[in-house]
């Protein structure tokens, strides 16, 4: 009867062998020529440039920037309302958060983009207006809980020290608590940013103009035009080129955070 360590080694060996066999089968069974023709056509690929970057990616980033800035503002307001001693503020904030976290982002975008203008006879200004607002509203709901957790994670002693120096509650919040809260929640905040960036792909439902077309719609339009899958691969690569550095930045921030709290 082999020892447990020998058994573990056998299992590992087995897993490696199975993986290699699986990959080997894939390599042989795949029709590489057809794959390349349908998804990696160099001509079509390079035709997408520079517009895939100068228009599509640029718009994606603009929507993300506006959406995130708005989301931060809304999220901070909601977090403060959730922490307020005034009960109606707490309930209103809780309701908002429940609703917009419970709805798919797509529905919220449709609501802001179509339902709102019809209901209130008002159009959100700016070329990037409706899309950015919708994204901000959704992001705000998610950020609210993150920001609230960050504020509550700041040690109570900080507020006590600030108040005992004579600072008002809002002075203490602005200069002492909120800056520290944001440092604490930088990793989840960056995660939220990446999620928001991906959600921009939902903005197509608002109808796109040549001016505001974002990355995913750009890719899908090009696929329809060329009857080829290459634009989707190109778009996927551009998305990854943006999100991968961001997620690496998050990991780096988390490591720095751990080091900072350890040395304190």
């Amino acid at each position: 009867m082999p020892s447990s360590r020998q058994r573990a080694r056998l299992v590992r060996f087995g897993v490696y062998a199975a993986t290699l066999l699986g990959l080997g089968w894939l390599a042989i069974a795949t029709d590489w020529a057809r794959l390349q023709a349908n998804f990696f056509d160099p001509g079509i690929f390079w035709d997408l440039f520079p517009e895939i970057l100068t228009r599509a990616a640029r718009n994606t980033l603009i929507f993300t920037a506006f959406g995130f800035t708005g989301g931060l503002a809304i999220g901070l307001a909601l977090a403060l309302m959730r922490l307020s001693p005034v009960a109606p503020y707490r309930w209103a904030a809780a309701a908002y958060i429940e609703v917009f976290r419970g709805l798919p982002a797509l529905i919220t975008i449709v609501l802001i983009g179509f339902v709102l203008p019809i209901a209130l006879q008002v159009r959100v200004p700016g070329t990037y207006g409706p899309g950015s607002l919708a994204l901000a509203i959704v992001t705000g709901a998610y950020l609210a809980e993150t920001i609230r957790a960050g504020i509550e994670a700041v040690p109570k002693g900080q507020m006590e020290a600030a108040r005992s120096l004579g600072m008002t509650h809002s002075q203490a919040m602005t200069s002492i608590i909120i800056p520290q809260a944001f440092r604490i929640i930088l990793p989840p905040l960056t995660n939220e940013l990446v999620l928001l960036l991906k959600d921009t792909s939902l903005l197509f439902v608002l109808g796109t103009t040549d001016q505001t077309i974002e990355l995913a719609k750009f890719g899908r339009d090009a696929v329809a035009e060329t009857f080829n899958g290459t634009p989707l691969v190109a778009v996927a690569l551009v998305y990854l080129a943006i999100t991968l550095p961001l997620t690496r930045a998050v990991a780096w921030l988390e490591r720095r955070q751990k080091r900072a709290t350890r040395d304190a």
Partner: peptide, 16 residues
């Protein structure tokens, strides 16, 4: 409170 200074067990300095 500006006339009363307070010193805490865990210092409570502002780390940032």
């Amino acid at each position: 409170r500006t006339r009363i200074g307070m010193v805490f067990q865990h210092f409570n300095l502002f780390p940032h």
